[in-house]
């Protein structure tokens, strides 16, 4: 099965093409983050010098979030549009699990973090046990003060993430911090494909990013309108 993997959730753009689990081609950049500009040409470039065509892709795995709101929307949009044209199976992968993926072979619990500013983080903890990835802290949006309470009882914690400068000194007490992009440690399109194997596919029409966090305007409105009823906010005219 020809599979496409996409991760442009936070750290750059990584796309991969694989046949079952066999990697055919992968292209990643951690430098240029303009996914709106480069994601599609980067996907197209995967097929150069291969006998395959984009129209043959049967399975698509997209890092669905959490992460940069903009990056997530671009990756998810590309995935859902392509899945629709190709009648391909579509899979949403946690971008925090995808970030943790290369460290999971160690067998240690892995904490992955993406800064959401003001000492708030998207965070998750995973560990590979008997060949299976177990979630020890589900993907959450937490203030650092809450997060540190949740992680203090883990032993041998490996920590990888972005935007950790403010909390680095304190965080060191809980485990070893490994910088993103050291060696080949970054969220890859290929690992998104591997993580999608055996998962349940999603209908392209229903596929949206897992932002975890609502926009500020919505939070404020809901606070002021606690009794609001849920209606269809978008309608065909």
């Amino acid at each position: 099965m020809l599979s496409l993997g996409i991760d442009c959730s936070e750290f750059g753009v990584s796309v991969a093409l694989a046949n079952d689990k066999q990697l055919i081609m992968e292209q990643s950049t951690t430098e240029n983050k303009r996914a709106s500009q480069f994601l599609v040409p980067q996907i197209k470039a995967l097929f150069k010098n291969t006998p395959y065509k984009l129209a043959q892709v049967e399975s698509i795995a997209v890092a669905q979030g959490p992460g940069s709101f903009t990056g997530l929307k671009i990756g998810v949009t590309a995935g859902k549009v392509l899945a629709n044209v190709n009648h391909a199976k579509l899979f949403g992968i946690s971008s925090l699990v995808n970030l943790a993926f290369p460290l999971l072979t160690t067998g240690n619990p892995v904490l992955t973090l993406i800064s959401a500013r003001h000492q708030n983080f998207y965070a998750g903890i995973y560990q590979k046990k008997s060949g299976k990835i177990v979630t020890l802290l589900p993907d959450s949006y937490l203030n650092y003060s809450v997060l540190r309470e949740k992680i203090k009882h883990f032993n041998g914690l490996l920590i990888m993430g972005a935007g950790l400068e403010d909390v680095k000194t304190d965080l060191k007490e809980f485990g070893i911090i490994i910088p993103v992009s050291s060696g080949n440690l970054f969220p890859r399109g290929y690992s998104a494909i591997l993580l999608s194997k055996g998962e349940k596919s999603i209908s392209p029409d229903q596929f949206v990013p897992n932002y975890i966090r609502d926009p500020q305007a919505v939070l404020a409105w809901e606070k002021n309108n606690p009794e609001h009823s849920v209606i269809n906010y978008v309608e065909e005219i």
């Binding site: 929307k73 949009t77 629709n84 949206v208 932002y211 500020q216 305007a217 919505v218 906010y233």
Partner: peptide, 22 residues
Amino acid sequence: RFGGVVPEVASRHHVEYINFCI
């Protein structure tokens, strides 16, 4: 709800409805 267009809310709706429209 907000008295004007909130860009982040708008872009989320676009992702939700793009396939439907096509």
